[in-house]
């Protein structure tokens, strides 16, 4: 089912630019996020997924630099080009339309402000009245699955899981239509991780949120996502429905990722990590970026870059050896 899109990325490229070198962290990425669905974005650390996440709120500050591409938003009816919004309009768009749960969420809260003040301030700056904001705090904390007692606490008085829930409460405060969740469960223990995942799922079901769920853990994403995009060395190498990606992967990298999941059923089978390291992105890559680590790589893989091509309905892969 091809859903109605709410956001669309076209040819996004982001580089880290220093005096000495340029690192292409995100290279020509295009995909769309469907309304009310969860899109999982999977890749190893350093593949550019957090950098890509920053584009949704145009949080691109030096040393990172937008090299090209466009980001269209459809949440307010008409098509809007977010990357060309004027500063005041961008400010209004941020958090009101698209909110985010950050990867470093342990440190995402201002250490010298109480929890409630960090919820209230963003609401006031997005045109809620003070009383309205004040009254919403309890409801938001409850929605995020945390006691309303924490509203008058400082971040250092909270555990990691509690901080993450506060972050979710803040993210929901302005009733956004899209939520970017960048590794929302890293550094949390498995039980809390599971609770957070369930929470996000129920938010999607109840509020109709569109969620981009970013993680290095493909098994986790497989549980929650409707669609999955696989990112490698700054590019999307495979994208498709979650069931297709999990059960019928086409790209050799996805296959390798999936085979590195420890499985409960055949515990006797040895789990193998992917040998080698991703390529450094400060120079041009010729051919397929995964070729050096791929068992099936041929001369063609090393000289000519495979492009994303349709392999199935709503399933694209950039590999010469589909399946």
């Amino acid at each position: 089912m091809a859903g109605e899109r709410i956001m669309e990325l076209k040819d996004i490229s982001i580089s880290y630019v220093s005096k000495k070198e340029k690192t292409d962290a995100v290279r020509n990425v295009s995909f769309q996020l469907d309304k009310g669905s969860i899109l999982g974005l999977v890749g190893e650390s350093g593949c550019g997924k957090s950098t890509l996440a920053s584009v949704f709120l145009k949080l691109i500050y030096p040393p990172s630099k937008l090299m090209g591409g466009s980001l269209n938003y459809y949440g307010r009816g008409d098509e809007e080009d977010i990357l060309n919004l004027k500063p005041p309009d961008l400010r209004r768009y941020r958090w009101k339309e698209v909110a985010m749960i950050f990867q470093g969420s342990m440190n995402s809260l201002n250490p010298v402000m109480k929890v409630e003040d960090q919820i209230i301030d963003v609401m006031i700056d997005h045109d809620y009245s003070y009383t309205e904001a004040m009254n919403s705090v309890d409801k938001l904390l409850q929605m995020a699955g945390i006691s309303k007692r924490v509203r008058s606490l400082y971040p250092h008085e909270l555990s990691g899981g509690m901080k993450q829930r506060v972050n979710i409460a803040i993210a929901l405060s302005c009733e956004p239509k899209v939520l970017i969740a960048d590794e929302p469960t890293t550094a949390l223990d498995v039980v809390v991780q599971d609770q957070i995942i369930k929470k996000l799922e129920s938010l999607r079901n109840e509020l109709g949120l569109s969620i981009l769920f970013i993680s290095h853990d493909i098994s986790l994403v497989g549980v929650i996502a409707d669609k999955i995009a696989i990112m490698y060395a700054g590019k999307i190498v495979e994208i498709g429905k979650a069931t297709d990606i999990m059960n019928n992967p086409k790209h050799q990298y996805t296959i390798a990722l999936l085979s590195s999941i420890p499985s409960l059923e055949d515990s006797g089978k040895k789990v193998k990590g992917i040998p080698g390291k991703p390529p450094v992105l400060n120079r041009e890559i010729i051919g397929c970026a995964f070729a050096d680590r791929c068992a099936k790589a041929t001369e063609r893989c090393r000289s000519e870059e495979p492009q994303l091509e349709q392999v199935d309905s709503e399933h694209l892969s950039a590999c010469y050896f589909p399946g």
């Binding site: 400010r91 209004r92 958090w95 809260l109 301030d121 997005h126």
Partner: peptide
């Protein structure tokens, strides 16, 4: 810091971002 990046993402008014 992460919390400043988050404050930017929150679309706070500039004076609030700077002051608080």
């Amino acid at each position: 810091e992460d919390y400043v990046m988050m404050a930017r993402a929150k679309g706070l008014k500039t004076w609030r971002l700077k002051k608080m």
